[in-house]
């Protein structure tokens, strides 16, 4: 486990769904904040429904949030589903269309609006306004390696850019039916 987790992560009852409604709700909130924090620390935007995050290049397992080896506890699948449902309802997690069959969840540890303003700010400071930028350039280009959104998955980036399109600040450029670039003004 390479991320710092709150003390409660080591608390065994957290892994068993509590029967009391009030406590159950608090438990779900705790899980939500743990997931958000962990993803933010790892700079990961997507997490598997089973709570596992892999390094895309090497395939190494970075995090398995629902399993805690230290105290030999893990959430069962029903409870995992419940946590996801809770987060989807709160808008802190999102089921991306492209990910529907691959069991991946997008985690909004920052809101889409916040991301879109970050990207807009980046465009303004780096003088990329009114220029064609490819999605790959935003998320993967070497010059952005210090940016907060470096490594963002393409599908997530599209979601963010859609916000800019909605407020008439950007237009998406397609190539062979796929959105590949964007022009931000």
């Amino acid at each position: 486990m390479s991320v710092a987790t709150p003390q409660i992560y080591k608390f065994p009852p957290l892994y068993t769904p509590q029967t009391n409604k009030l406590i159950r709700k608090q438990q779900l909130q705790t899980w939500e904040s743990i997931i958000l924090q962990s993803c933010a620390q790892l700079s990961k935007w997507c997490i598997g429904r089973n709570g596992k995050v892999y390094n895309q290049a090497t395939g190494e397992l970075l995090l398995s949030i629902f399993e805690n080896e230290e105290i030999q506890r893990s959430c069962n699948i029903e409870f995992q589903q419940e946590i996801w449902a809770f987060m989807l309802q709160n808008g802190t997690a999102l089921q991306l269309k492209e990910f529907e069959d691959s069991n991946m969840m997008a985690i909004l540890w920052e809101s889409l609006d916040s991301w879109s303003s970050t990207i807009l700010e980046w465009c303004e400071t780096s003088g990329k306004l009114n220029q064609v930028i490819t999605i790959y350039e935003i998320c993967q280009s070497d010059e952005n390696s210090s940016c907060k959104f470096y490594g963002m998955p393409t599908s997530f980036c599209l979601l963010v850019l859609q916000r800019l399109v909605d407020c008439h600040r950007a237009t998406l450029l397609k190539d062979q039916g796929k959105v590949v670039g964007v022009k931000i003004v």
Partner: peptide, 16 residues
């Protein structure tokens, strides 16, 4: 609203 010119498309190809 935001015009996409031929130059933009060519640029997109280049960047791709």
């Amino acid at each position: 609203r935001i015009k996409v010119t031929e130059a933009d498309k060519a640029m997109l190809q280049l960047k791709m």
